[in-house]
Design a protein around this nucleic acid. Sequence first.
DNA 1: GCCAACGTTGGC
DNA 2: GCCAACGTTGGC
Length: 154
Amino acid sequence: MKSEPDAFSIDHLKKKGRAPWDGVRNYQARNFMRDGMKKGDLILFYHSSVEPPGVAGLARVAREAYPDFTSWDKKSAYYDPRSTPEKPLWLMVDVEFVEKFPRFVPLDTLRSTPALEKMLVIKRGMRLSVQPLSEQEFEIVCGLGQSLLVGGRA
DNA sequence: GCCAACGTTGGC
DNA sequence: GCCAACGTTGGC
């Protein structure tokens, strides 16, 4: 999952412990949250629009997809008049903090790692804020980040 | 249902 | 700040 750290970073999540992933306003990304994310699933937390962009750590699905209440909040930047509490258009999941990687994994590193050549995030023009990846890719990225979950260090 | 215009994303 | 890539909108 991608976030601009100015708005919401892995450190923000660490401080809060758990947070709703609100503001997703793209159908494909919404559908990935709805169909592809189960409680307990691990998530790569990606920092975008910063130098360097890359994977900052791990989160976990704490609550499966449910209506994004910011979509009918007129005061929200994410307000969408087509969405109502009765007929919600947009969804979100709750995520909880797992860890900040001991070593930040820059996009450049993802690109130069042969086993990650099929990973969506390195594809040209890939702007989806929620993307699926394989277990193998996930584990390789965790290794690069020196995740505490890898190699029995936890 | 097509597609041009427009808005947004996000790496650079 | 630029701009390529992509998604959405709306006229026809």
